[in-house]
Simulated assay, not measured.
Amino acid sequence: MDMHALKEEIIKYSQAIGIDKIGFTTAAPFTDLKARLYQQRTLGYQSGFEEKDIELRTEPTQIMPEAQSIIAIALAYPTKMPHRPENTKGKRRGNFARASWGQDYHDVLRERMKKLEAYILNRVPDAIVQSMVDTGALSDRAVAERAGVGRVGKHTNLITKEFGSYVYLGELLTSLRFPSDTPIEDLCGECNLCVDKCPSGALVQGGQLNAQKCIAFLTQKKDFIPEPYRKAIGNRVYGCDTCQQVCPYNRGVDFHHHLEMEPDPEKVKPELKMLLGLSNREFKERFGSMSGSWRGKKPIQRNAIIALGNYKDATAVTLLIDCLLRDPRPVIRGTAAWSLGKIAKADSEVLQKVLDVFQQAMISETDDQVLKEIEHSKKELIN
């Protein structure tokens, strides 16, 4: 079979099914990536969400022994919405990162990948194919970079020349041996904006991320967010776009190629106080189709509480008191104490009310971390 001709057929078909960019590479080991991943582990910079087995992440044939090639794909997602809901005093809103706009991108990419798989198997019935999207062991960015789809920038996201870094990535392992595409050159040069503007200093240096400091990862963890990073959360309830927003390759970038990715303004810019009262069922019904819902409602609600504290929103005091005194989850109670402290420090009218509530909560509270949060907030108010 003429593999050059088949490759061109696949490229043409990929465009017909809504794949914005495609590239081909070998299934050889990702040697350089392996060294970096072991270094990240040694430094304690990993997020905890990634595949633990570094050999599996960097050796494609451990996933598929017959693998000869990897096909990388990219889909561009939108960065702007035509109508943004107002963010006003008393009705403060949170923010979902753009990567969580629209339908869960895992589903969108899987649908495209399944079509690509079916096309290849129709052309070559005895081929072996296996697709992966984000949750697979391989590094989507490393595969896409080697396949010439783009280049990983200093912000650790893949930059494409056409769509900037606002792209979702997936890959398909196959037993077919395709001609490989050529990786593109470095795109960042001397630019260091993403490193300089990172709100939490998570970009240790160009291309190296300490995920333990990264706002995007912190908003997804279920435990308490360390106090030094809470101000940097701002009004983010899921993810962070700062390093991408400042990237010169993303200036003016806004592609609306896929209807499934279009944002619902009320979902991606939700009212913060509304988030606090959602039941599990209500949360799933409203936000379950978004990728940002994958960790459940607790991290979103905790982040909303932090955002209300950052806004110094006195209209949320009653709700936050209810969280502190009645919520069964220590993370929510403790974070509410922090937020109430920030609001009371900025608004003398609620100061005494909050201090009284702290006194009440300390009598009944049994969780050590929550008690520490209350004591710390109380100390800041009376000093």
Rank of each mutant, 00 (worst) to 15 (best):
M1I: 15
E9Y: 04
I11C: 08
Y13I: 02
G18F: 00
K21E: 08
F24P: 06
F24S: 12
T26Q: 06
A28R: 15
F30W: 12
L37D: 02
Q39F: 09
R41P: 03
T42M: 15
L43H: 05
E50W: 01
L56H: 04
T58D: 05
E59D: 14
P65K: 13
Q68D: 10
S69K: 11
I71V: 15
L75N: 09
A76L: 09
K80E: 14
H83N: 00
P85L: 00
E86T: 04
T88N: 06
A97F: 01
R98L: 00
D107L: 13
R110W: 01
E111Q: 12
R112Y: 10
K115H: 08
L116T: 01
V124D: 12
P125Q: 05
S131D: 11
M132G: 12
T135P: 05
T135I: 13
G136P: 03
E145N: 11
G153M: 02
K154N: 11
K154W: 07
T156R: 08
G164N: 01
Y168G: 01
L169N: 03
R177T: 07
F178V: 08
P183E: 08
I184M: 09
E190P: 08
N192G: 08
D196V: 14
K197I: 10
P199R: 06
A211D: 06
Q212R: 14
K213A: 09
I215W: 05
I215M: 11
T219S: 13
D223N: 09
D223F: 10
I225V: 11
P228G: 10
K231W: 04
K231I: 01
I233Q: 02
I233Y: 04
I233A: 02
G234L: 08
G234M: 09
V237A: 10
Y238G: 00
Q244I: 05
P248M: 05
N250C: 02
R251Q: 14
D254I: 08
H256Q: 14
E260A: 14
K267V: 07
E271G: 11
K273T: 12
K273S: 03
N280Q: 13
R286A: 09
G288S: 09
S289D: 13
S293M: 08
W294F: 13
G296C: 12
P299H: 04
P299V: 07
A304W: 10
I306Y: 02
A307D: 08
L308T: 09
L308Q: 10
N310F: 11
A316P: 00
V317N: 08
T318I: 14
D322H: 02
L325H: 05
D327E: 05
P328H: 04
R329A: 06
V331K: 04
T335K: 08
S339L: 07
G341W: 03
I343R: 03
A346D: 11
S348H: 10
E349C: 07
L351G: 01
L351Q: 11
V354P: 05
S364A: 13
T366L: 14
D368F: 15
V370A: 07
L371V: 14
L371R: 14
K379Y: 04
I382G: 04
N383C: 11
